[in-house]
Simulated assay, not measured.
Amino acid sequence: MRLALLFLLSVAGPAQAIQTCELAGEHVNPANGHTTAGKTGLMRCRDADTGVIQREQELRDGKFLGAVRFYRNGVLEREHRVNERGNREGLAREYAATPGERNPLLREETLRNGTTVGLARSWHANGALRRASFHGDDGREQAVAEFNDRGQLGELRCAAQPLLAPAADDAVWCGHRGGPASVSLFNSRGELTGRRLHERGELRSRESFWNNGKPRETVEIGAQGGTERGFAQDGVKRRETQWQWSTPGDGGTRRRITTLEQEFHESGALVRERHWTPGERGAELRSEKRWYLNGQPSEASEYTNDSGRLLRRDTAFHDNGQPRFEGSYAVTGRYEQQPVGVHRGFDEAGRLRAERHHDERGRVTRERELDAAGQVTRDDAVFEDGSRKAFSR
């Protein structure tokens, strides 16, 4: 049933062309196992109306095993072999299927029970190498080099050792010989799009460019961590991220732990900054700051651990740099927080103008208001039902 379904799918097309198949001069129907039972040889299938060959497939004792070829308009388009499980095995090729004497090879790969392994290559229609990749036993790509039709390198991913020869010289490009190596990358029009620096297969720096040639992104990677920066098309830095590597104690895969994030306005002014420190469960946020565009601080938050309880101390500012609010919160969940202690409000001159006191459950218990001279104008005790009365000492 599976082979019959594959056959029907292969012959189905926009016009639902009908194929007729023969083996050693006898008519066979690959969808009907009785017509192929016990037979060995090469089955050929042609368009029933034109007689143009569309498919060839090898049978051994009634089983589809060995060579398989597909044609388009009578020109070879794909060829491979299948094993006893019906999966592709060994060398497989794809062609442009163009009429005439020349039929350019577009892709070549080796498969093991349906999985691509080892070196795979593909070509542009003009014969220039388009892509070279190396696949491990599990089929995953370990190294890749891509090219435009001019032969210029367009993308590069390196492995811990050279893998792409003879198709591509990743031994040199990836810094496996003679120290760190830098390569330039180009798009299909031959324009410079980026650069890569590798050392013994490891990426040390990466940069990409906008169409106007200005930097778009830069990445620097070292043994301890790295830095990533993003830029607008006019060259102004808009973001920066710093991280460090963290390797689990059991020798597992190292992880990237972010330690700093910065955001910049289109003018280049810093408008937001966050700091993390590595912790048992990854990165723990320690501080966050925001700025007005005039350069004065807008908001600041500091995180501390108080006997296992996470506290956040918030400060907000007027645009002249004077404090507007101060207060602490116990962070009880991702979106949950509880007021702690005394929260204070200030006027634009930085003078204390209001206080709000909280109990251990975060409920307001007292509110005070002060005038510009610092004299108390209201001092109320606040009760659970929302009622209040003048606070008595």
Score class of each variant (00 low, 15 high):
Pro166Ser: 10
Glu141Gly: 00
Gln142Ile: 03
Glu146Val: 09
His176Ser: 03
Ala132Arg: 02
Val183Ser: 06
Arg189Cys: 06
Ser133Tyr: 00
Ala128Tyr: 09
Val172Ser: 13
Arg157Leu: 12
Arg195Glu: 15
Ala125Gln: 14
Ala181Gln: 15
His124Cys: 10
Gly136Pro: 01
Gly194Lys: 03
Phe186Cys: 10
Gly178Ser: 07
Leu156Pro: 02
Glu191Cys: 08
Gly127His: 07
Val144Gln: 01
Asn187Val: 08
Gly178Ile: 04
Glu191Ile: 11
Glu141Trp: 00
Cys158Val: 06
Ala125His: 11
Phe186Trp: 13
Ser188Arg: 14
Ala167Trp: 01
Ala171Gly: 14
Ala132Ile: 03
Arg177Phe: 08
Gln161Asn: 09
Phe134Gly: 00
Ala171His: 08
Asn126Glu: 09
Arg177Glu: 10
Arg195Asp: 13
Gln142Glu: 14
Gly139Cys: 07
Glu146Tyr: 02
Arg131Ala: 12
Trp173Thr: 04
Ala159His: 13
Ser188Thr: 14
Gly175Trp: 02
Gln142Thr: 03
Phe134Gln: 01
Glu141Asp: 05
Ala181Lys: 14
Asn148Glu: 09
Ala132Tyr: 01
Leu164Glu: 06
Phe186Glu: 08
Ala125Phe: 10
Gly179Cys: 06
Arg177Ala: 10
Leu164Cys: 05
Ala132Pro: 04
Ala132Gln: 04
Glu155Ser: 15
Asp138Arg: 02
Leu192Tyr: 07
Val183Asn: 02
Arg131Lys: 15
Ala143Tyr: 00
Ala181Gly: 10
Leu129Thr: 08
Ala159Leu: 05
Gln152Trp: 09
Gly179Trp: 05
Glu146Asp: 14
Gly139Ile: 04
Val144Glu: 00
Ala125Gly: 13
Phe134Thr: 00
Asn148Leu: 12
Pro162Ser: 10
Pro166Ala: 11
His124Gly: 11
